[in-house]
Nucleic acid binder design. Structure first.
Lengths: 156, 156
DNA sequence: GAAAAATAGTTATACTAAATAACCTTATTG
DNA sequence: CAATAAGGTTATTTAGTATAACTATTTTTC
């Protein structure tokens, strides 16, 4: 039985389980549930291209900072150097990005998107935007803006 | 070099990396960053008791539904049966919960918190509330309430 | 200007969390 | 009563992450 089938079965069978009023009043808990809700469709869309969310985020950062070093990319993504290697290897193998020895410092690479990478990124940005809006259809445009404002106040 | 030291070093060295306006306008991205921000302190607090967030969440659910079956607990947490086994083993080993054969169906266990589990849970609830509020000091009481309302509209 | 220390990136290894499949026991169904 | 399903466990695999050691350069320092 798949995870989805299993969950549905259990959800149907035991819907009488009570949730907790403490959890329901924690911002952290609500953030997690809302994020899970929104992330599902993004993960499945990116999966069509063999990409994970962090790889999509990497493409966005590379596009915005062409030729940045791997260490800079890793810092942006909060991942360790070995993971940066794996990530860029993956993008290179997919033909979406490349390392170029283009710096005075010959230890480092500049990281760039390929033409194919730029094209795919544009598609994915459109899709991500649509998925984000689709996952928040219950919010009005004003509510979306207000939600963004409040969330930024938390992490900025 | 530790992960934290590494990140700080890089952040200081390369703070000129540009972030992206698309990402900054996605609710999903803001949710993730806000959640990361809020979760750090909770994880470290729970770590003092060798607990992970999912184990804390399990304790909350067990407290609210004493004697529930493992399958019900797994459904609430969206985890698979083998993970439920690991989770309850952990809580049992810490003396915080227990399996009791108390059902007509002798295949299943009722899961309960121990007295120690209930005591610890009360402490942790207080701590979690404080951490949640501490992580959202930039929000007024009205803004907190509004944020909760908007988040619930997304996932409910 | 050469030796020492530090940095960019890579590789290898280990650890952890999660998913999958096979299994045992008890219940239910035909 | 045989066949099937369900609750839970165990074993195995897989993916993600973390750590350590290594190469090749660059910077520092004496």
């Amino acid at each position: 039985m798949s995870k989805l089938e299993y969950s549905q079965k259990i959800d149907n069978a035991y819907s009488g389980v009570q949730s907790d009023s403490l959890l329901d009043n924690l911002i952290g808990y609500a953030l997690k549930r809302a994020h899970v809700h929104l992330n599902k469709n993004l993960v499945s869309k990116l999966g069509e291209y063999e990409l994970r969310p962090s790889q999509f985020a990497a493409m966005v950062i590379i596009k915005q900072n062409p030729g940045l070093m791997q260490a800079e990319l890793g810092a942006q993504l909060s991942i360790e150097p070995p993971q940066v290697v794996t990530l860029i290897n993956k993008l290179e193998n997919l033909g979406l990005a490349m390392r170029v020895r283009c710096k005075p410092d010959k230890r480092s690479y500049g990281v760039f998107l390929s033409k194919a990478g730029e094209r795919l990124l544009e598609q994915l940005k459109v899709a991500a935007k649509a998925i984000d809006i689709g996952g928040t259809v219950n919010l009005s445009e004003n509510e979306r803006a207000e939600l963004l404002r409040l969330l930024r106040k938390i992490y900025q």
